[in-house]
Design a protein around this nucleic acid. Structure first.
Length: 948
RNA sequence: GCGGAUAUGGCGUAAUUGGUAGCCGCGCUAGACUUAGGAUCUAGUGGCGAAAGCCGUAACGGUUCGAGUCCGUUUAUCCGCACCA
């Protein structure tokens, strides 16, 4: 009987569904293992062949772990909130919930056909109120916690309040806590809450009508849609992820991720060690602008404006400072600019402010700036230095003010050259051989030299000088050792509809969170998905928020407590809100009373294996780690790191096919290798589904589009050969391969094996189906092998093949080398077929080995061999070392390092025996030529080398 | 510019981790069985050479009896960050 994959696959998929074969319980005597895929955003385009790549890999591992006796949690769900559904809603009026539901249905159908072993009873959707209740709940916890720097963890804000109540010191605002009004207290606490509201410069995308997080903007364009993004000051919710910067770096030590991904995260967090130094204003030099300066000079009253704080990673170069630079946004520019410079400075600041983010980034090399007329004092040398303004100093990093050392910083160097400012060398690779900096072509940024012209640090290495300078400034009280991070707080508001509503209302303009028992605060219906006429987010259209428990209800965007009416927050949460903790919810998705129970999290701990794309390296994977660490601090999650081992599946690119249309004759198409084709034709994308192995199906091509119905062809060898190119997988290039077609044609098992066979999971690769036949052929051969089995006991040769296969497959799975596993299976089946007979015992064992990879055929074979349970309840076979032992080893024999021949010798022989065997061999006699060897290198089971 | 990675036949890849480079698959060539082949099977397939043999893992150099693998320099490609002081 032939291998009818259709029958087999639908039969077992139904069996698994009916028997809840992959249901996973939270109680078990077995050890636990959690295998997770990054859950997909259900886009309208459906699943393409790139999605299942990671899912197949994780499914193989999950199935393998089950066979190894683990209780495996392997869930799936949907990251269902997102911009595309909402953009579609704006265009068509179709409610995003409906589109999303349809897309989810389609995804589910597609996934089911591939035969995954997900426990669908644990499915989560981020847009489900039962789920986002806990997203909102976590937000409330973030709001109600602050980061205690001494304990180095999040603590309840009530503890901070208690400290403030007991404190006799005034706060930074200058007032005692007890003297503050409620509003002042709320404002003050806002500086500490882990979820806080603040006026911050944000990435505003006018076309999307929302703000975006840093990782959602690339080169000044939005990741979604590619619209321009501008900087804008807005009142927004943010998460104080920067409080966790150090722990996010440290935690990378404890996880098994690739070095490159860890490095991406380290770079994104961007830790820099250095010093903050106060550069006082030179009051005398600025007397004409500084209020109170004359009084200070004449009568010695306190200094009116004290100083600028700068951050530097090169405190050792402080003797080389020749000017200071402020960012255009710096708040003190107005106070220090001299009347003579005022007009010019204001013009520059305005110009800088109105430049788009993209312009600024595109013109990085262009130097611009303006002198304020003011001067500061180098606190170490008492030297007077001019203060400039330039947009190469960024407002968001450090303090927005720098000390410029043009000799040793390339940007300062370019600035100094452009404005003709002095350059002073204070570091040299060779202190005895200094050259005039004015003749330099570039600055000396290296940290390997020695300090020169630098007072007490002259002669020290840069490293020592750094330490000495920091010690000195701390001693003098003019600065301190500090660390800066590039990481910014995560902007958490989106002016969009399709997201989690904030559980927040406003009283006297101050935000308060809803009581927990009021959650979830459901997303209301709106009649329009666009912003309101007054510029409010879409939720401003809502007239009734569906919520009326506990005698409270929300009407007209307002919370009514029967006495007062409070407006609600109208923005929604960003995409990463729902995806930051979903892996924890899978542990206990039915729980209505908690995010997840202590029992569940104590059992599962964290994700053992996480598979997904590296493109989430600076987004989801940072946010989720932050989210988890916060939940850890408040006693919910039990591990500091959410994802123990992480594998990044490589991106699958599209492989486009082309036909070549003659320039003269629109109906004539030339095959790729026709001479002169390149000059006389235009390549046209052709649907890859009507091309097989680069050979065009001419009839299907004619039927594809009316314009090609009368097409004529110039063929080669009777075939039309198409051209091809690797491009992004996209509808417009007709190169999207969806898995359904392949499943229909070859079956799910072939698709699964083929996706693995394509190459290492981690590697990016173009999709092509050129090799899929070979994998299909293998399954047919395996089926043939199964049908030709005998009831005899397996003989020695079979056992050797089998045990080699067990060993190889086991090793391959353990190191995620699934492409070599497929090869191993092929070799095994070829060997057994070549041998002629195979014992059903061997086939039985092979069905278990194959079950993770090709579960349907394995299940069918396993049952036909007389088992009445699912193959996934079998146990993984152990190989027997004895079956693998070779009785001889083939030694390469070399003379004077040159390999001359090989010699089969028994295992475990001694050097004497080996050399005797070489001497006995005719080839050995020839090379020794009667001489005694000078030296013998003998490595058992490796090599025999003879020096003559 | 900084950081990370990769480089092997016509193609995807493999190499017991320093030990006969090219397993497995695709493609290709020849053959068998066939009314037929988008089925199946057999043999061959890195290059040069009639053969013996020589050459060959991006390039050059080094360590080693022995290097695809380790070290150094260079080149190319991919990815991440990018005026982060």
């Amino acid at each position: 009987m032939d291998y009818y994959f259709n029958e087999i696959e639908s039969k077992w998929q139904e069996y698994w569904r009916e028997n809840h074969t992959y249901r996973c319980l939270n109680q078990s005597d077995k050890p636990h293992y959690y295998v997770l895929d990054m859950f997909p955003y259900p886009s309208g385009a459906g699943l393409h062949v790139g999605h299942p790549l990671g899912y197949i890999a994780s499914d193989i591992f999950a199935r393998y772990k089950r066979l190894r006796g683990f209780n495996v949690l392997h869930p799936m769900g949907y990251d269902a909130y997102g911009l595309p559904a909402e953009q579609y809603a704006i265009q068509t009026g179709q409610h995003p919930a409906i589109t999303t539901e349809q897309n989810i249905q389609r995804y589910r159908e597609q996934l089911d056909k591939i035969g995954f072993s997900f426990d669908w009873e644990r499915e989560v959707r981020t847009c489900d109120p039962k789920y986002y209740k806990w997203t909102q709940w976590t937000f409330i916890q973030l709001f109600n916690h602050y980061y205690d720097k001494e304990l180095d963890k999040a603590c309840p804000i009530s503890q901070l309040v208690k400290k403030l109540e007991q404190s006799t010191e005034p706060t930074e605002s200058g007032k005692l806590w007890s003297e503050m009004t409620e509003g002042e207290r709320e404002d003050y606490l806002m500086n500490f809450r882990l979820a806080y509201l603040a006026d911050i410069p944000v990435n505003w995308c006018p076309d999307l009508g929302t703000v975006l997080a840093n990782d959602e903007v690339v080169n000044g364009l939005s990741v979604r849609g590619g619209y321009p993004v501008e900087r804008k000051l807005m009142r927004q919710w943010s998460l104080r992820i920067t409080a966790y910067a150090q722990r996010l770096i440290d935690g990378l030590e404890d996880v098994e991720w690739t070095d490159s991904l860890k490095e991406i995260q380290r770079n994104w967090i961007g830790r820099s060690e250095g010093a903050a130094v106060w550069f006082p204003l030179d009051v005398k030099a600025n007397a004409d602008v500084l209020p109170g300066a004359q009084a200070y000079i004449n009568q010695g009253v306190p200094q009116p404006v004290d100083s600028f704080e700068i951050f530097t990673t090169r405190p050792d170069t402080i003797f080389g400072v020749t000017f200071m630079v402020l960012c255009p946004e710096h708040e003190m520019i107005d106070q220090i600019t001299t009347p003579a410079q005022r007009e010019e400075v204001q013009a520059y600041v305005n110009w800088a402010k109105n430049r788009s983010e993209r312009e600024r980034q595109a013109e990085v090399k262009k130097v611009s700036g303006v002198f304020t007329g003011a001067f500061a004092v180098n606190p170490l040398t008492q030297e007077r230095i001019p203060i400039w303004v330039s947009d190469y100093v960024l407002a968001g990093y450090g303090t927005g003010a720098i000390m410029a050392v043009p000799a040793h910083d390339s940007r300062d160097f370019a600035f100094a050259r452009h404005f003709n400012l002095p350059i002073r060398q204070v570091v040299a690779l060779d202190p005895n051989n200094l050259t005039d900096p004015d003749t330099w072509e570039e600055s000396l940024d290296s940290k390997t030299g020695y300090s020169v012209n630098s007072g007490f640090i002259s002669g020290m290495t840069v490293k020592d000088a750094m330490k000495a300078v920091i010690d000195k400034i701390e001693e003098m009280g003019i600065g301190y050792r500090t660390i800066n991070y590039r990481l910014r707080d995560a902007i958490f508001s989106r002016q969009r509809y399709w997201g989690e509503p904030f559980p927040v209302y406003y009283k006297d303009n101050h935000p308060y969170t809803l009581p927990e028992e009021c959650l979830p605060l459901c997303l209301p219906e709106v009649k329009d998905f666009k912003p309101t006429a007054t510029g409010e987010p879409p939720l401003g259209h809502a007239t009734r928020w569906a919520w009326d428990e506990k005698n409270r209800c929300v009407v007209d965007n307002s919370l009514i407590d029967n006495v007062n009416v409070f407006p609600l927050e109208l923005s929604t949460m960003p995409g990463f809100a729902g995806s930051s903790g979903y892996y924890l919810r899978y542990m206990d998705p039915w729980n209505d009373n908690a995010y997840f129970s202590h029992e569940a999290v104590n059992y599962w701990q964290n994700v053992d294996l996480y598979i997904g794309g590296a493109e989430h390296g600076t987004g989801h994977l940072i946010y989720a780690r932050f989210w988890n660490k916060f939940l850890y601090d408040i006693g919910l999650s039990v591990k500091q790191e959410p994802f123990q081992k992480l594998i990044n599946q490589g991106m699958i690119q599209g492989r486009s096919n082309f036909v070549y249309r003659s320039k003269e004759d629109n109906n004539l198409f030339l095959s790729k290798n026709i001479p002169g084709r390149e000059e006389t034709t235009v390549p046209i994308h052709v649907d890859i589904n009507i091309v097989n192995n680069d050979i065009l199906d001419i009839e299907k091509f004619k039927a594809w589009r009316p314009e090609f119905a009368d097409a004529r062809f110039e063929l080669e060898d009777g075939k039309y050969v198409c051209g091809w190119e690797i491009e992004k997988m996209s509808k417009s290039m007709y190169n999207v391969q969806n898995p359904d077609d392949l499943v229909a044609r070859y079956g799910a098992d072939t698709l699964r094996l083929y996706e693995m066979f394509l190459g290492p999971v981690e590697q990016a690769k173009p999709w092509d189906t050129n090799g899929i036949e070979g994998v299909f052929r293998f399954l047919k051969k395996f089926w043939k092998l199964f049908e030709s089995r005998t009831d005899a006991e397996p003989d020695k040769a079979e056992q050797k093949i089998l045990h080699q296969t067990i060993k190889k497959i086991t090793d391959d799975i353990e190191r995620f080398s699934f492409n070599t596993s497929v090869s191993t299976f092929m070799i095994c089946v070829n060997d057994l077929l070549a041998k002629g007979t195979v014992s059903s015992q061997v086939v039985d064992c092979l069905s278990i080995l194959l079950a993770p990879f090709a579960p349907h055929i394995a299940e069918e074979v396993y049952h036909q061999l007389g088992h009445d349970t699912s193959v996934c309840q079998a146990s993984w076979p152990e190989y027997d070392e004895k079956m693998l032992v070779e009785d001889s080893f083939t030694y390469p024999v070399s003379f004077n390092g040159k390999m001359r021949f090989t010699l089969d010798l028994p295992m475990g022989i001694s050097q004497q025996e080996a050399i005797a065997a070489v001497k006995a061999d005719g080839r050995g006699q020839k090379w020794l030529d009667g001489k005694e060897p000078k030296r013998i290198v003998f490595v058992p089971n490796k090599i025999i080398n003879i020096v003559v």
